[in-house]
């Protein structure tokens, strides 16, 4: 039984990767979107206003501020929308092949989420290569910390996407619901503006947004060698990661049952 479960998780993970690497448009989208945000939105906002809101009075370049946020955003979007592959699989019949296999259904969700986690770490790697454009020079050690954070956040949000997609009939429905969730999660995560400067009511919403902790964890890792940026951080990396871990348990609980009612 254990062997069969591990094989299932492995092969579903493997398929997710094969399919991803074969699809060139996915590659393009994955690289283009964060690059655009970083160059246009980042540069644009940075030049339109002096970024004064870093607490402690230390001026931090807006690009430095937004860079971890862009990584968080890419992870969020990629992992949430990866759930759509389930709807494709249902549409093209392949989901049946998986559902009639003599394996527990939860293993299917876990394999898929691990695949998503792996893919977003590749995406993280590409974004790390872009870090000089944000005026950052990162060490290998930083990179080694950033990638597992990406993977964990991707795993948690991937399961959220899976639990939505597994219960949805149409692409449109999935897109609607997941947009409805990702947009506020992104805006409230502190990726674009810091928590400190937001009004009280907005701060409350930001505190309950799980992505806030993902972005903060990324900042913790990336700002490791930048003393003047420390004031932007909200929590310790351990605290951030435990919240993201808890969140992944919640999404896992809904994600692993996504296929149970299927027939």
């Amino acid at each position: 039984m254990l062997e069969s479960v591990l094989k299932t998780i492995y092969v579903i993970w493997y398929r997710e990767l094969i399919r991803f690497f074969r699809e060139k448009s996915q590659w393009a989208g994955m690289i283009m979107q964060p690059t655009l945000y970083l160059t246009f939105v980042g540069t644009g906002i940075a030049s339109a206003m002096t970024f004064r809101q870093a607490p402690g009075g230390t001026p931090v370049d807006y690009m430095t501020f937004i860079y971890p946020g862009i990584i968080g955003m890419s992870v969020l979007f990629t992992s949430m929308f990866s759930g759509i592959s389930i709807i494709w699989d249902r549409e093209f019949g392949f989901l049946k092949e998986i559902l009639v296999a003599p394996v527990p259904r939860w293993a299917i969700s876990v394999g898929k989420a691990l695949g998503i986690g792996t893919i977003v770490s590749f995406q993280g790697t590409i974004l790390l290569i872009l870090s000089p454009f944000a005026g950052l020079s990162l060490t290998l050690w930083t990179a080694l910390k950033v990638l597992p954070i990406c993977a964990l956040v991707g795993f948690a949000i991937g399961l959220l996407g899976i639990s939505i997609a597994g219960r949805m009939e149409s692409m449109q429905g999935f897109q609607l619901i997941s947009n409805f969730l990702t947009m506020p999660m992104f805006f409230l995560s502190g990726a674009m503006f810091p928590l400190h400067s937001a009004p009280q009511w907005l701060q409350v919403l930001m505190v309950i947004d799980p992505l806030t902790y993902g972005v903060d964890a990324l900042r913790n890792a990336i700002y490791a060698g930048i003393p003047e940026a420390q004031a932007i951080l909200q929590h310790s990396i351990a605290y951030d990661l435990s919240i993201v871990g808890l969140f992944s348990i919640v999404t896992a609980a809904t994600g692993v049952t996504a296929f149970n009612r299927q027939g």
């Binding site: 699989d89 093209f92 019949g93």
Partner: peptide
């Protein structure tokens, strides 16, 4: 073998 194809055509 189902009535509709159930292969992954990208593999």
């Amino acid at each position: 073998v189902f009535q509709d194809y159930s292969l992954d055509d990208r593999l």
